[in-house]
Computed example of a mutant assay.
Amino acid sequence: MCSHQKKSEDDSCSITYPREVKVQKTPSASGHVNLTCNSSCPLTDPQTVFIWYKNGKQENKPQAKHPSSSPDIFSCAVKDHENLISAEVCVADKKCSTVNYVNRRICALQSSSINISSQYSHPDNKQPKFKVWYKIKRGEKQEAEKLTEAERRVEFSDNKNHHNLIIKQLKKNDSAEYIFRVQTNDEEEIRFDSPGVTLVVTDLEVKFNPSPVVTEGDRVTLTCRTICPLTHNTNYIWFLNGRPLTLTENQNKHLVLHPVSSQHAGNYSCSVKTNQNKKSTEKTLTVQRISRSAPVAAGVAAVLLVIILLSVFCWIRNKRTSCQSPRVEPSENMEQLNPVPEDEQDQDPVDHYYSTVYFSENHNDPPYSNIQHHQLQEQQHTPYAVVHLRSN
């Protein structure tokens, strides 16, 4: 269901706050009034059943038509959602007493102060003698507690049919339902069938999403959490290691750190601007550094693998080259040129062989001038056999 105070279709709906059910009074013929329980939003179930209250007491067989002079008071609610009740309506204006509330549900912080406001009316000939607030804890077997100013935390104020209950330094035990009653005499029966104002006292708590332990570069969202939505628009203040954070944007209940770094690590707490002295318990955010040993090890392993592959490749290549190259037998002291068989000369007349090479002591002689030829051929390129050097 949706509230008649909705400003946009995108607003979320609530069956608890703000109030949306109301009694509509329509004049009819023959001095009667028709009462209808309406909601500003279409009901999801056309068979929705309404509950009627007459003079604060649930009515088993409600009537739609009532005499216009009736002093009775009516209100209504949706079945199974009795905590969402309409304002009280008097059939005959100015002939009965009514009590309504500005807010039906209030969520407040522990140690703060709240103001529960009521509106009341009464017949001109019946001035109220007592204006009393009661504290009730539904579901518990205990009588309603009548509030007095004897307790210093409780105060009352009254101004033009508005009566206010002020509670200071709220405690968790103050969470309850508060009902205001106007009495014209001491013997008047006080009934608590119709609901009053529900007060929920909560603390602030810091929550981390996804976790209080993150890694550098991650995204983490901090939320200043309460067990119920605070009634009034609230500005939040964030603290890191006890010092308030200076943020460029308007601070709200969510603090986003992205990308998170080691500078963000520390103890976080939060408070509301209207009550900075009441801070949440500190919660620690741990930021782990990115491990650099793994990339370095992987890089070293890759370099070593490349070196090994290159070494194997070069070894294989050198081995193949050495197998294909002609074998040379060097000798420092070679005395005699190997003789060349004659049959090999006959078989290969193209090759020229030299039997002896003499080195002249006269360095003026041109090189190879003392070489004796066994054969001379027209072939210009002459292969040489093994040359042996002999000392004279």
Rank of each mutant, 00 (worst) to 15 (best):
H4I: 04
K6N: 10
E20M: 13
S40E: 02
P42Y: 08
T44I: 14
P46V: 13
P46G: 13
Q47P: 01
K57D: 01
P62W: 04
D72T: 09
K79Q: 15
D93H: 02
K94L: 08
S97H: 11
V99I: 11
N103H: 13
I106Y: 00
D124S: 05
N125P: 03
V132Y: 10
V132P: 09
Y134M: 08
I136V: 14
K137I: 15
K137S: 01
Q142C: 12
E143W: 06
A144R: 02
E145S: 12
T148L: 03
E151H: 14
S157D: 14
H162C: 06
K168A: 12
Q169M: 08
K172F: 14
K172T: 15
E177V: 07
I179C: 01
R181Q: 07
V182D: 03
E188M: 11
E189H: 07
R191S: 12
T202L: 00
S211D: 15
D218A: 07
V220Q: 05
V220H: 07
T223S: 08
T226N: 03
P229Y: 10
H232F: 05
N235G: 10
Y236E: 03
I237Y: 01
N241R: 14
L245F: 06
L247T: 09
N250S: 14
N252I: 07
K253V: 00
V260A: 00
V260H: 04
N267R: 09
Y268D: 08
S269V: 05
S271N: 04
K273H: 12
N275D: 04
S280H: 00
T281R: 02
T281Y: 03
E282K: 14
R289E: 15
V296N: 09
L304H: 05
V312E: 04
W315E: 02
W315D: 10
I316C: 00
N318T: 08
C323F: 04
P326W: 04
E329R: 05
E329V: 05
N333L: 14
M334G: 11
P339L: 15
P339T: 10
Q345L: 06
Q345N: 04
D346P: 02
D348C: 01
D348F: 01
P349Y: 13
H352G: 09
S355R: 02
Y358F: 07
N362I: 06
N362Q: 10
H363G: 13
P366N: 13
S369Q: 05
I371K: 00
Q375A: 03
Q375F: 06
Q375L: 03
L376G: 05
Y384A: 10
A385H: 05
S391N: 11
N392H: 04
